[in-house]
Design a protein around this nucleic acid. Structure first.
Lengths: 213, 213
DNA sequence: ACCTGAACACCGTTCAAGT
DNA sequence: ACCTGAACACCGTTCAAGT
């Protein structure tokens, strides 16, 4: 429903984005693929940036739904966290241009974009909090810890997408490997310094004091 | 020495990059700022992408030198690691366009770019290895662990630069905070599962076994 | 060896119309 | 309400000359 032309334009732009990056997205080519004139997009979007923002909003909403779909209430939180972070990295590697558009600086901010991104982050934070309660992650503000694990997945995916993750030859670590490493280290940190287990409290507490000065 | 025009062109392009992003870099404006015609750049660079690559190569070499300068042999490796990672994030926040250009996908690869990036990564790996020996980081392949800490600094800086790190209000965590958190967790993991200290060997070993299946 | 001016193809955007 | 065709300003790149 609604005018199908708008969806056709977004679909055509997304395809051009995958093929030739953001520089390959041309309003003239978008119109040609959608079967309209080269400036028909201006009847549906205020500018080219607004069309790109529509792609980002669609992708962010899909990612949010994918997170929700991949994590049923029955899945252990540690496994759910790994699946979500790996999906984040996989999506970045498969659709680098759309990834950079969705998670880059939005030239044209829209409530749709903000809401979808916020909801996805809230879902991740919930998984992190559940993993904390299960003892798989260190205690502390789940919002802050969710930002940390997301930052690592984002950085590993972005560097790998640009070919800057493993300058050396074979046997290198991919984004998924780094995510696994981090989850292992966080689990060890939870066992060492966390209040949930109580093991090694004296040493973990000392390390916290030192770093916090 | 050499033709000063080339350096003037790179300098002008870098300034335009800081002011208006990569879209603000125009060969016509670059030529105008350097006092030459709009296509004089083609006598020094094969294309606009080659000019942008020259900016990236200059910045990567400067970052490599900054890493080397900030870490004298006398500095404790843990402090050196924190300084280097924080500098990485600070640079991304102050010069987002140049950061994305230097660490993004290079359209025109050059030996200069590859060498500078490789040397900077080698310096970071050396610091990581020293921190491992000091017991501040978990044991294991230093190349892989250096990739992990770099990925977190990169992701935190990139997300913060785009405004996607802390969607909520005040009291949020910046890239520097996430870097500190990670270094703390890694220190705790080193104390828990590392072979260097010997503390909590039984528990750390079990966690490793579980995750590795 | 380095630079210029004109020219070409292309693009984002606007505008006056059309239905 | 949605679309078209012409037009404008701009840009990357090329080319024939100039010194």
């Amino acid at each position: 429903m609604s005018s199908g032309t708008r969806d056709l334009l977004v679909e055509a732009a997304a395809r051009l984005l995958d093929e030739g990056g953001v520089e390959g997205v041309t309003l003239r080519e978008v119109g040609r693929m959608a079967g309209v004139s080269h400036n028909a997009p201006y009847k549906h979007f205020a500018s080219k940036q607004a069309l790109l923002a529509a792609i980002a909003a669609r992708d962010l909403a899909r990612e949010r739904d994918a997170i929700a779909a991949q994590t049923t209430p029955a899945t252990p939180p540690e496994q759910a966290l790994r699946v979500v972070l790996r999906h984040y990295a996989d999506w970045a590697l498969h659709y680098p241009a759309r990834f950079k558009l969705a998670f880059g600086a939005w030239q044209a901010a829209s409530p749709e974009l903000d809401q979808a991104a916020h909801e996805a982050q809230a879902l991740l934070t919930g998984i992190v909090a559940a993993a904390q309660e299960a003892g798989a992650l260190p205690a502390g503000d789940p919002v802050r810890l969710a930002a940390l694990v997301r930052a690592l997945a984002h950085g590993a995916a972005d560097l790998a997408s640009a070919g800057h993750l493993a300058p050396d030859g074979k046997g290198h670590a991919g984004p998924g490997d780094l995510i696994d490493d981090m989850l292992l280290y966080l689990r060890q940190a939870a066992a060492s310094g966390g209040a949930s287990t109580g093991l090694c409290d004296q040493d973990g507490g000392r390390a916290i004091q030192e770093v916090a000065q």
